[in-house]
Amino acid sequence: MSDTGTAGERAARGGDGGGAALVEAALGFVFPAALRAAALARVADHLPEGPRAPAELAAATGTDPAALTRVLRLLATRGLFGEDEQGRFRLEAAGQALRSDVPGSVRDAILMITDRTFWLPAGRMDHCLNTGESVFEEIFPQPFFDHFAQDAETAAVFHDGMAAMSGVENGPIAHAYDFPKTGTVVDVGGGQGGFLAAVLRAAPGLDGVLYDRTHVLAGHQLGDDEALAGRWSTAEGDFFADVPRGDILVLKRILHDWQDESCVGLLRACRRALAPGGRILVVDAVIAPDNRPHQAKDLDLLMMTSLVGRERTYDDFRTLLTAAGLRLTRVVPTPTVLSIVEAQALDDASGTDGS
């Protein structure tokens, strides 16, 4: 008779102290490897109309039929695909976002997260544990963002992946905050402009500035939305040195990339650019002081291995903001894993401390 139940349940019944569950957890890396392989082959794109036999699906994707069967068999255990009695595979509802041609697709996000720039350093986490330093430069010739600036193909994977990852969260985050009716919002390090577009749609009285490096702005998508016509512009530069002036300055998924000293310098640049009565919105995960699972705790280790930054707690953010001449006024939760940490200049009398 075969054993049933989760690894944890089996371990409890077997009295092995949880060893079986730990072994199963150690095998967990195989799932994202299979997920990446399926995403690269665009398997989901070939299953919108129903199940297909492995040989047919392999011909359409340029893959080996036997290997494809084995990959999809594992992914089916996670509910992304399903296999019928004839051995044909279908795409389940949980796997629809693997398609590249549907709204809310996360295919590019999966390819970014499982790219070698994250995958290889994660496998060397012991280096970080022993030294307290990122292992990225042990594997690649340059720091993370310098590597991207010199490698257009890898940079495209990153920026397309960030756009896809943000695509499912931008709208809910933008609607979670009560933006002013008029003024200028500057999206600092705003990438392809997805979040700025969501803000401008949520607050039709605002104008926006998308601020980033030249090679990043080349891929922006603001011009694709006729509803935003005449309400946005782009600005190129180094956000550590200078930031365009605005009433609302947004830093979405930016501070977690950097060490505290660099974050303070960036926040000071934003403080200098802030209009009187303005606000800085740090949109990042806020790690809660408990042991509940949270995506930020996973991302925190990617920041540790590949970059030099970290995810932060409420107190961490308050310390950074204070050092930059800012005051944390409140933290606004959103329906996503991110929160909005709102700050104002210390010499701005409006607002109250959110602590």
Score class of each variant (00 low, 15 high):
297 K>S: 12
144 F>A: 00
222 L>W: 03
151 D>G: 04
68 L>R: 11
95 G>R: 01
23 V>P: 00
131 T>D: 10
28 G>L: 14
335 P>H: 12
355 S>C: 00
82 G>R: 11
209 V>P: 09
119 W>F: 12
119 W>R: 07
183 G>Y: 12
341 V>N: 01
154 T>D: 01
70 R>I: 00
214 T>W: 04
251 L>F: 02
256 H>D: 10
110 I>G: 00
29 F>V: 11
61 T>H: 08
72 L>Y: 03
4 T>L: 14
196 L>V: 03
304 M>Y: 08
179 F>C: 13
339 S>Y: 06
208 G>P: 01
104 G>D: 07
232 W>E: 00
183 G>W: 03
129 L>G: 06
40 L>P: 00
156 A>K: 08
268 R>P: 00
334 T>Q: 11
165 M>C: 05
184 T>S: 14
206 L>R: 03
284 D>F: 09
49 E>G: 08
95 G>W: 00
78 R>L: 12
301 L>R: 03
29 F>A: 05
340 I>G: 00
238 D>G: 01
107 R>W: 06
187 D>P: 01
291 N>T: 12
222 L>Y: 00
318 R>D: 02
44 A>T: 07
69 T>C: 12
293 P>I: 13
41 A>Q: 05
355 S>A: 01
117 T>R: 14
259 Q>Y: 05
55 A>Q: 15
322 T>C: 03
156 A>G: 11
177 Y>P: 06
151 D>H: 15
87 G>I: 04
87 G>S: 11
297 K>F: 02
189 G>L: 08
193 G>C: 09
42 R>F: 13
233 S>C: 06
244 P>C: 08
